[in-house]
């Protein structure tokens, strides 16, 4: 048990959480933007619930609460699921923003060619949305990396968990938690750098906001 192993746990859980969040979040955003009234309402409710409650509470409900209903999850599983369900709500809103900013005209042009709604969404809207969503998604990714620290509360040895154990063992809270902080900073900066590279590689010539004006 050391910070290296802890970092590994943090990264793994963050990665799975983000992936799960995207797998759920993108369909949720589609439901919100293009779904019928009941479908849209369902998505809206999900998003409101998971954004309206603290991640910690969601984690505890899933890990400590579900066993009451006979669903006992292993620590890491519970952590990944909680992070995933939570991230889905935030990612859904980022994707929805991307869909909205694409504008009605693209959908109209696609439908005018004879594309079904589904084809239009798949071939025209989503490819553009994936590029537009990168800044927001990067924000969520970095947020998730930091928010994942909450999983130490269910005795997972992520970076924060390791820090807490070391602090207790050697009576060095300042040193231990500073180390935790530094590790997070390094992780966040690296992730930010990587996502920036991704955003640049996805840029469509001639399109999109030149923020550096």
């Amino acid at each position: 048990m050391d910070f290296l192993k802890g970092t590994g746990v943090t990264l793994r859980v963050t990665f799975i959480g983000l992936l799960l969040g995207m797998a759920l979040g993108l369909p949720l955003a589609l439901m919100r933007t293009y779904g019928s009234k009941p479908v849209s309402k369902f998505a809206e409710t999900y998003i409101a619930l998971f954004r309206g409650t603290p991640l910690m509470v969601q984690l505890f409900l899933i890990y400590f609460g579900l066993p009451d209903f006979g669903i006992t999850l292993e620590r890491l599983t519970a952590a990944c699921i909680s992070l995933g369900l939570n991230s889905a709500a935030y990612q859904a809103e980022y994707f929805r923003g991307a869909f909205t900013s694409i504008g009605l005209g693209q959908m109209m042009a696609a439908r005018a060619l004879g594309m079904s709604k589904i084809k239009a969404i798949f071939y025209i809207i989503i490819p553009q949305a994936l590029r537009l969503v990168v800044p927001g998604w990067a924000n969520e990714a970095i947020g998730m990396l930091r928010a994942s620290s909450v999983i130490f509360l269910i005795a997972i040895l992520d970076v924060m968990g390791v820090g807490k154990v070391l602090s207790g063992r050697y009576f060095t809270p300042m040193a231990s938690y500073s180390a935790v902080a530094i590790i997070y900073v390094i992780l966040v900066l690296s992730m930010g750098w990587g996502l920036n590279k991704l955003e640049n590689s996805l840029r469509i010539p001639g399109l999109q906001v030149e923020l550096r004006k």
Binding site: G105, Q106, M108, A109, A110, R111, A112, L113, G114, M115, S116, I124, P127, Q128, R131, I204, L207
Partner: peptide, 20 residues
């Protein structure tokens, strides 16, 4: 309607080319 629309071409004021 998707089959029908293939027989009708539409050109928009804002062009609406697929930007990607």
């Amino acid at each position: 309607i998707n089959v029908v629309r293939q027989k009708m071409g539409m050109v928009f004021q804002d062009f609406n080319l697929f930007s990607h």
